[in-house]
Nucleic acid binder design. Sequence first.
DNA 1: CAACTGTGAATTGTCAGCAAAAGACTAAGT
DNA 2: ACTTAGTCTTTTGCTGACAATTCACAGTTG
Lengths: 228, 228
Amino acid sequence: MIPSLSEPVRSESLVDIVTKRLEEAIVSGELAPGSRILEQSLAASLQVSRGPLREAIRRLEGRRLVERRQNIGVRVAELSPGDLSNLLVVREALEGMAARLAAQRMTPAEIDELERLLHEHADQEELRDGKAYLQASYDNDFHFRIIKASGNRQLEESLINDLYDLLRLYRARSSKAEGRAQKAWHEHVEIVAALRSGDPDRAEAVMRDHIRNARLSVEQMMPPAAHD
Amino acid sequence: MIPSLSEPVRSESLVDIVTKRLEEAIVSGELAPGSRILEQSLAASLQVSRGPLREAIRRLEGRRLVERRQNIGVRVAELSPGDLSNLLVVREALEGMAARLAAQRMTPAEIDELERLLHEHADQEELRDGKAYLQASYDNDFHFRIIKASGNRQLEESLINDLYDLLRLYRARSSKAEGRAQKAWHEHVEIVAALRSGDPDRAEAVMRDHIRNARLSVEQMMPPAAHD
DNA sequence: CAACTGTGAATTGTCAGCAAAAGACTAAGT
DNA sequence: ACTTAGTCTTTTGCTGACAATTCACAGTTG
């Protein structure tokens, strides 16, 4: 494809590229949580010098995706089961609010689109013969749409740029709870219904229930000693 | 004071020092929102080379306190009135949740302490002869205590390390609404009462009302055109 | 006189090298 | 055998220099 002439020729800075690459590697599990990052070797394999790499790492530090210890080195952040539970509490608060705002702002057309997504996924799931399965991309898409429909840019950034990245840190190794998929899908149906009703209180309550259930399901699978 | 022997002798890295210094300068208004940061001159005045300064800036980038544009430079983040309003919505969601959790965890002694803070401030305010005044340090202290009492480290970091810094960006230039001080104090009384009752729903509702009122007060003072 | 082009200064982006700290390994001593 | 001291290697922290880009301003042209 020929790029538009109005677009800049030059690509982003090395720091931007490296940041994205690292972010991708971390949330995908390519760089495992807790694993150490060696500047020299990583810089070599990315074909950049240590300067830009260090700056990219600093940015991820600000977003809590990596942790640095003085003169020791950088590690990919590691979430304890307790941290995960705590993050899901934060998510419950924020996405509950997002659903509240979305209920007041979403157009019927947008809600239709959301419902279409819902049924499309239901069909896919039937093909899989009832096997517990909840495709992450569908789930993300469903939630992202509602978050974006909130019309609150700060809320959107807090959730999508910060919180979801941290959550994916965990999701990279532990898959979703087994029996949750079908239940979660029905909760999505409830959410769409609440959004269509336009009732902010109901939308927030239903969304919070949904995320709270996800948290309880996760907590049930965790070693009880690790709850703190 | 003599430092504990178990503490390291060496100070933090230059990046850590510069990060703190910049953060302080930004939230205090010493570096005004929207103002440009020149690496060379700032590095010179801080007596460090550009490397550590750039890394510190990258960290603040990750926290959205500064914004960088390719080959142009770095600016201190600037919040529109709409952004402020949006941030207060996020705060309402998060601190509502913090109050909910705190209601279930705070000991009577902690609540007494909170109440002591409340009345101490009331006395100070009487001395000021009814003049509308809400000391920022008191207000922060009040809210911080509840946030920390939530026992949720992720929630605490989201609020204190991220959100409050962004909010202070704005507070640096526009002071609190005039008539709010007394009302806000009474709302604080309500919050303490709710916490003492141990009822999570009530605690969350009262805290959300409090922050929502603050937002509405701010929105009233803003140019209506800027609400988006 | 307006608009465009070209030149130079200022600023950001990147790199390589040096200094300092931490970690690993060996060897000696109790 | 276990601890301790010493040395060597690896890795991080920091600096200065160079390259690339942007911005400001003057000169030129229509």
